[in-house]
Amino acid sequence: MQVLAGDIGGTKTALAIAEVRSGRLSFLRSRNYASAAYPGLEEIARDFLSTERRRPTSAAFGIAGPVRGGRAEVTKLPWSIDERQLARRLGIRRVRLVNDFIAAALGIPRLSRSGSVVLLPGEAESDGPIGVIGAGTGLGQAVLVRVDGDGIAVASEGGHADFGPRDEREDRLVRFVRKGFGRVDRDRLLSGEGLGHIYDFVKFDHRASDAPAVARAFPGNDRAAVISRFALSGRDALCREALSLFVSIYGSEAGNLALQYRATGGVYLAGGIAPKILPALRRRSFRDSFRSKSPLEAFLSRIPVRVVLEPKLGLLGAAATAYRIAIETTR
C-alpha cells in the first residue's frame, strides 16, 4: 500500500510517498518545498503528485498549527486547509490533518536506533507516557500514551503558554522582549526567532554591539544559524552567552513537559534546532535546568532525554496516520 505523507511547517513543507508492507514503512520518494513560495498546500501537493502514475490510497499531513474538525490554520503562514476539500481536489479518497507534533509523537516508535541519541540517561518505563518537544520555526509539544498496546498522541499548544522567568536575568529578558511584542510566550523564545531575541537581549544587557565578524555574517543569512555557529565555535562571547541561555530555557521547558505529562517513558527533543546545537545541549546547563525542580529532582533524574536526529520524524508519523485511516476504510 502506498500513502502520501506531509510535514507542513512555516518554513518548509516536506512531502513523501511511503510504502507500507506488513506494518513496515519505507519512503519511496520525498521532496522539500519552501512553504512561503506557494499560496497553499494544494499547489505543493499537486506539483509533488504530478509524476505519480496513480494516486496514493490515503494521505495525512502534520500541520504546524491547531487542527479542529478537519480544518487547520498554519500558525506562521496565511494558509487555511480543509481535509475534505483537499481530498476532493487531489483525488485522494481519505485525507487526514493532524497537528505536526501529533505526527512527530506518532513517529517516535518508528525511529531506527540511529534516529535518536541519548542526551540524559535514565530509566524509561515501557508503558510510560513519552513527551515530545521541539524548537524550530516555532515550539511544538505533544505526548504519546499507550492504550491497549496502541500509541495515542495528544496534541498541545503549550508552546504558546506564557513564559515564566526563573531569575532576575530572565525577568530582564521578558521585559526586553515585551517591549517589542507585548505578551511573551514560550514560542517567542524557544524558536529560531527566539534565539535572535535572546541574542539581542544579551547585547542590550551588556550594552554591547555586534562583533564585526558577526555583523558581517547577519545580512542575508538566518540569524539563529549565525549565532549558533559563532557560539559553538567559541568565536564570539555574546553568541556563546545567548546560546547558553537558550539551552538553559530549553532544558527548563523540557523538564516542565516531563512534569506536566509525567513522561516516565522519556522525553524526546525534536524540531530542527536540537541536532544543530547538540554540543551545547550536552553541557551541564541543559541537565541542571531540566532536573532542578524542587521537590521533584529525583523523579526528573530518572527520566531519559533523547535528541531526535531523524529529519523525517514528522513524515514517519504522518505516513503511519495515513496507513491507519486506509486500514480503517477497508474494515
Results as ranks from 00 to 15, higher is better:
Gln260His: 08
Ala124Trp: 12
Leu296Glu: 06
Ala142Pro: 02
Tyr261Gln: 14
Gly158Pro: 06
Glu73Pro: 00
Lys203Ile: 12
Phe163Trp: 13
Ser50Arg: 09
Leu106Gly: 01
Ser301Val: 08
Arg240Thr: 12
Ile152Asn: 12
Arg229Val: 10
Tyr33Asn: 03
Leu15Asn: 01
Glu42Tyr: 10
Ile325Trp: 07
Gly220Ser: 10
Ile81Trp: 02
Ser248Leu: 06
Ile8Cys: 13
Val98Leu: 11
Asp148Tyr: 00
Ser80Met: 09
His197Tyr: 15
Val3Ala: 04
Ala16Leu: 08
Pro219Phe: 08
Ile133Cys: 03
Arg169Glu: 14
Ala254Tyr: 07
Gly194Val: 05
Val308His: 00
Tyr38His: 13
Gly115Asn: 09
Phe290Trp: 07
Arg223Val: 15
Val202His: 09
His206Ile: 01
Leu190Cys: 10
Thr75Tyr: 12
Ala280Cys: 14
Pro304Gln: 08
Val202Glu: 13
Val305Asn: 01
Phe181Lys: 14
Pro165Gly: 05
Arg84Cys: 05
Val118Trp: 05
Glu42Pro: 00
Glu241Arg: 15
Tyr38Leu: 03
Leu111Gln: 01
Gly122Phe: 12
Glu83Arg: 04
Arg169Ser: 14
Glu157Met: 12
Ala64Asp: 10
Ser294Leu: 06
Phe176Met: 07
Gly180His: 14
Ala263Met: 13
Lys276Arg: 14
Gly62His: 00
Ala37Val: 02
Gly271His: 01
Arg229Ile: 08
Glu297Lys: 10
Leu245Gln: 09
Phe48Ala: 00
Leu41Val: 13
Val118Phe: 04
Gly182Leu: 11
Tyr199Gly: 05
Asp200Ser: 15
Val305Pro: 01
Phe163His: 05
Ala231Leu: 07
Arg71Pro: 02
Gly107Ile: 00
Ile277Gln: 03
Gly140Gln: 04
Gly265Thr: 07
Phe218Met: 15
Leu232Ala: 11
Ile92Asn: 02
Gly107Phe: 00
Cys239Trp: 01
Ala322Trp: 00
